[in-house]
Nucleic acid binder design. Structure first.
Lengths: 254, 254
DNA sequence: ACTTGACCTTGACGCAACGTCAAGGTGTAT
DNA sequence: ATACACCTTGACGTTGCGTCAAGGTCAAGT
């Protein structure tokens, strides 16, 4: 089946202007031009447009999309698998915002206290995630990790060194957590070290620290299974354990 | 606590440039200016910025956001409730895309057939949803439904009359489904009428119809509980029933 | 007091991704 | 031939900043 700009635009839900623009920039060329000059698109273009729309949804710039889909080595199936992963990640990021708004509602109702930095939970993560979507895989493969890390660091207004320390500390939290969980005791030395490391990690993105906010975040980790999953990859029950460790940590440092 | 542009920008994950721009357009004015001309923000501005970021996340233009948050009647708590609703809707819309990519992967693997129009499921819904976020509540309240419906119709490249018919038919499907489900028989006259109405509804957005695609969509309705919920609001089990009705309908019209 | 580096200001240019409009050609049904 | 929907190219304009320049301010260290 063949499509002119309006048919294809209707099919996909984009404007004819966008299709002409995509032609102009070399992102999506029509299969051919009719004798009267009309753009005629075919099946391969339909499939390619689908890919383009997924990439666009994930926040990539058109020039980037162009470089990806027009690469001779482009693999449509593999790309689809990646879209899926990234859409799931985007969904999780959206979940962060939903939880944020729910917490803010709760705080507004006087049921809890919310620190200023908590009010922006999710938005900053979105920065890094969006940056990762845009530059992550392709650029890492091509230029190595530094370019992306620099960009992520910039997003969070950190030096590259600081960002590296940030990500290393995150890994250390996970590693220490894995060990601590084996003790089965959230107030054990290892568990308290984990909580302290976690606190240090928070220091990178929080302008100020409070035990309440720390505890609030820990509660969030277990309040929703989607976030518990991040820590439970270390060990089932690790998110709960970390919450308890933080509870002990914040109570002890009162 | 008070913040200068960089502190507030770091807190919220936005650039100093954005904050200055927001000041410039009157969206977010600082609490005061220091003797040296520095912008100084306080607690009310922090809360307001959070609201702005939620609206921005939901796709509203800054001018629109400005009109909303600077309205003397603006109610922060009510706004937060609305953010929550809309974020959940956005999440559902994202789920559509995830299911689409999963179906495309399946089709690529030869496990199923996928029509061209199915490849863009979710993207077109995104158009209407985004439009609704931008213009829905406030404009409907202010000017009535027609302005938004016109805009939605334009999004889907329909006349206003066609869009009205489209939305009315959608309601009719739900109404007929409610009745049909009471028969308990997916091949009953009522159930088959429902499936026929559903097919007509699809005719508004699909350039071509196929039984396979129809069946595929019906499977989607029950494959994921998040979408089943849309039909199950009629009656628990209605999504399943509709799927079965469509199965009978497409088998019978073979 | 002076220096240094981080942070602040205003002003201005430029960009991505189109939306909109104008002028004129094409296809199809009546 | 007419009418209407759709096509083309060309061009201007918009939104929301990113980036840069020039110069002022703040705070800690010497």
């Amino acid at each position: 089946m063949e499509y002119t700009v309006q048919k294809l635009g209707n099919l996909a839900g984009i404007s004819t202007r966008a299709l002409r623009y995509y032609d102009e920039i070399g992102l999506l060329k029509p299969a051919r031009k009719s004798s009267s000059g009309y753009r005629i698109y075919g099946q391969p273009e339909v499939d390619k447009l689908q890919q383009i729309l997924f990439y666009r949804e994930l926040g990539l710039e058109l020039e980037q999309i162009k470089n990806i889909v027009n690469n001779p080595g482009f693999n449509g199936s593999r790309a689809l698998e990646e879209h899926r992963e990234k859409l799931l990640a985007k969904r999780m990021q959206l979940d962060l915002l939903i939880i944020n708004v729910e917490k803010t509602i709760s705080a507004k109702g006087g049921e809890s206290i919310m620190a200023d930095n908590e009010k922006f939970e999710g938005f900053k993560q979105k920065l890094v995630d969006d940056n990762e979507q845009q530059y992550g895989r392709e650029i890492r493969d091509k230029y190595g990790d530094d370019v992306v890390n620099q960009s992520n660091a910039k997003m969070l207004n950190m030096s590259e060194e600081k960002y590296q320390a940030f990500t290393l500390l995150e890994q250390e939290v996970l590693d220490r957590l894995a060990e601590a969980v084996k003790t089965g005791d959230p107030s054990s030395e290892l568990a308290q070290q984990t909580a302290e490391l976690h606190r240090q990690w928070l220091g990178f993105t929080w302008p100020s620290y409070s035990k309440e906010a720390h505890m609030g975040l820990a509660e969030m980790y277990v309040a929703d299974e989607r976030f518990a999953a991040y820590y439970d990859k270390v060990q089932p029950g690790a998110a709960q354990f970390l919450r308890d460790a933080i509870a002990a940590y914040t109570a002890q440092n009162q």
